[in-house]
């Protein structure tokens, strides 16, 4: 019976990774990393995010699903945003601890890149999550159609929402 065969299959071996998943991975991996990288600004961290995103997809969705790219793009943005948001919260606590312990921070020791990275992450972590996701998707090169598919938005509203997201982001980095 089917269940018996399936049981046998489950018992004997973890099913092999489907070729369709490997093809999807090869097609979308660099894009998923690019989206995560726009948010976390660190290559290793972006690759970790991408691994988690693909594993989540693997667990729950068939690789040949038509929605696969849109799902991966959205998940990349949201997972990366979760990473920086939790870090932002932890960072605030750590900053408070640092001030409390009165340990001096020497800004000259930080490179400009590190400073920019921290500010971008901070700004993206503080603005509305959908706005942050919009920015991450748009600046990693997704088209309006792809963004609309990923975030479940109407294509016609992407332009307006993007402008608002940019305004919000700008306010955060200039505050």
């Amino acid at each position: 019976m089917g269940a018996a065969s399936e049981a046998l299959r489950g018992v004997v071996a973890a099913p092999a990774m489907p070729a369709s998943f490997e093809a999807l991975f090869r097609r979308e991996y660099s894009r998923v990393v690019a989206i995560a990288y726009r948010v976390v600004r660190d290559v290793a961290e972006a690759e970790d995010v991408a691994q988690d995103v693909f594993v989540s997809f693997y667990r729950k969705h068939p690789a040949d699903a038509g929605y696969a790219p849109a799902w991966l793009h959205a998940a990349a943005a949201h997972t990366a945003l979760n990473v920086i948001r939790s870090r932002e919260r932890r960072g605030r606590r750590e900053t408070a601890d640092t001030v409390a312990r009165d340990v001096p921070v020497d800004p000259a020791q930080q490179t400009e890149d590190a400073e920019t990275r921290a500010e971008v992450r901070g700004a993206l972590a503080r603005i509305d999550e959908r706005a942050a996701a919009l920015l991450a998707l748009r600046y990693s090169g997704l088209s309006y159609d792809e963004i609309a598919a990923a975030l479940g938005l109407r294509r016609s509203s992407i332009g307006t929402m993007l402008r608002r997201a940019e305004d919000a982001f700008r306010k955060e980095v200039t505050r």
């Binding site: 660099s30 990393v33 690019a34 990288y37 971008v120 920015l135």
Partner: peptide, 9 residues
Amino acid sequence: IMNTPDVQV
């Protein structure tokens, strides 16, 4: 700020 070059993977 946001238009950083893509990373090589």
